[in-house]
C-alpha cells in the first residue's frame, strides 16, 4: 500500500514534468523539468530496491548530465528567451515523430510487462556481485560491452580535446 502510494506520486511527477519539459518555451525551464523527471525515475529505482541503479541515475543523469546541460544552456546566447513557434510543417513532422515514438514505447512496454515481476524479485544486488558481472568474461557477464563503451567515451574525450585545443 505504501509502495503503491509512493509509486503513484512518482508516476504523476514523471508524467507532469515530462509534458512540461516538452511544452515549456524556455529552454532552461525545460532542462529543469527534465531534471525532475530524472530524479523521479531515480525514485522509482529506489522503490524497486535497485540501490545501485538509483545512485548511478542520480550521479550520472541528475548530477552529471543535467549539470552539463544547464551549463551548456547558460553558455548559449539568450537562454531565458521564449522560443518562437515553429512552422506548421515542422509541427506536423514533430507530431508524427511523437506518435511513432509513443507507439514504439507502448509496444515494448506491452510485450515486456510480464517480465517486470521477475526482475523486481532480483532487487538489491550487492555491489560485489555487480562488479563481477560487469567485469567478468563468463556467461551473462559484460566485460566486452563495458570496455567498448569506455572506448567510446575515450573517443569523446579525445574529440573534445581536438576541438578545444589551441591551434
Amino acid at each position: 500500500m505504501a509502495q503503491q502510494v509512493i509509486f503513484f506520486i512518482l508516476a504523476i511527477i514523471i508524467a507532469t514534468f515530462s509534458i512540461l519539459a516538452v511544452t515549456s518555451k524556455q529552454i532552461i525551464r525545460s532542462a529543469t523539468y527534465l531534471l525532475f523527471v530524472l530524479l523521479a525515475t531515480a525514485g522509482l529505482y529506489l522503490l524497486l530496491g535497485y540501490n545501485y541503479l538509483f545512485a548511478v541515475q542520480i550521479a550520472v543523469y541528475a548530477g552529471g548530465v543535467m549539470v552539463l546541460f544547464i551549463f551548456a544552456i547558460l553558455l548559449t546566447n539568450r537562454p531565458g528567451e521564449n522560443i518562437k513557434t515553429e512552422l506548421p510543417v515542422r509541427r506536423i513532422a514533430a507530431g508524427i515523430t511523437v506518435i511513432g515514438g509513443l507507439a514504439f514505447c507502448a509496444h515494448i512496454i506491452y510485450w515486456n510487462i510480464k517480465r517486470v515481476g521477475e526482475l523486481v524479485s532480483q532487487a538489491d544486488i550487492s555491489p560485489v556481485k555487480l562488479g563481477h558481472t560487469m567485469l567478468g568474461t563468463g556467461k551473462y557477464e559484460y566485460l566486452l560491452p563495458f570496455e567498448v563503451i569506455s572506448i567510446l567515451l575515450l573517443a569523446c574525450i579525445v574529440g573534445a580535446i581536438m576541438i578545444a585545443r589551441k591551434r
Partner: peptide
Amino acid sequence: NIGVLYVTAVSSL
C-alpha cells in the same frame, strides 16, 4: 550497500 556511491551521487545535486 552502496553508501559511498550514494553520498557522492546525492551531494552532486
